[in-house]
Nucleic acid binder design. Sequence first.
DNA 1: TTTGATTAATTAGCTAACTAATCGAAATGG
DNA 2: CCATTTCGATTAGTTAGCTAATTAATCAAA
Lengths: 157, 157
Amino acid sequence: MVDREAGRALLHGLGPVARGWRQAADGALAGLDVSGSAGWCLVHLDSVGAVPRQAELALLLEVSAPSLVRTLDQLQRAGWIERTVDPDDGRSNRVTLTPAGKTMAGQIQARLDALGDDLLAGLPAEAVEIGVELLQLLNLRLAEERVTRLSAQLGDG
Amino acid sequence: MVDREAGRALLHGLGPVARGWRQAADGALAGLDVSGSAGWCLVHLDSVGAVPRQAELALLLEVSAPSLVRTLDQLQRAGWIERTVDPDDGRSNRVTLTPAGKTMAGQIQARLDALGDDLLAGLPAEAVEIGVELLQLLNLRLAEERVTRLSAQLGDG
DNA sequence: TTTGATTAATTAGCTAACTAATCGAAATGG
DNA sequence: CCATTTCGATTAGTTAGCTAATTAATCAAA
């Protein structure tokens, strides 16, 4: 049985910590002319071997497709990615890093990793493992909850 | 030593889970005409015995003062809180729940608690404890990081 | 083969957070 | 005792997420 108070602390604490992390990430990338979310997108693009379509990339980054559109617009304006129409499917864009974008991705990754190392320094690995599992479970249950909620909405409306 | 991959999973996972939780909370409050953040504000107001000033309430809720202003505007329009100028300090507002607001706070708390119980059902209490401690530590380190970052900014700019 | 449904990306508009700048009130130093 | 500084709340403007609706392309089926 989970203590009511602890449960509240966990669920409420997520928001502020997530915001703090985003701000810290933005700060770590200051001077690179890239926001944290855009930077994270570059890093993922660099680490996946393949050339993903936008929808796949959105899944990977856990954001909605329209949110990704705006991020990619920024990255494209900056000359760090390119969108090319998939030859096999005229609806899809394939997203690739430009050489400049690849360089940038490396710098971003280095800075974010350094920040992450600082934040998590000295922690027992098990605690982090448990935290990750907790987040994964919550993600799963929230997804289920979302399904039931949206179904109910359909039933009502 | 924390595994690099696990660290990334933890830090990156915070955002999506926090968003999911907020959406689920909004869903749970559907029909009450109150957003999750405003509802959370009401619940806190109900649970603190005292009559806080806005700045104190912002600290408690871990949001900035301007963010709280908007939330309070909504709650005040709905007739659930009142702002009264502190007799001892003409700059400060004291925030109080109206009777209607108190009723509303009770309903909100019940729904959020039910949602929280569902999400955390069956979890070992220790895992939640560890999660909470992890969040608290991150909060602390992020606050420190923020200080050093803003100081550096001053030095530069 | 043409029509209808589905899918990918986009646009438009909303929300809730943030910072920076402003205004009035209080505190403080000369 | 006045001038300056500090402090609390607000306003204005930015950012990043979201949903809903649109457009274009593909797929399926009559």
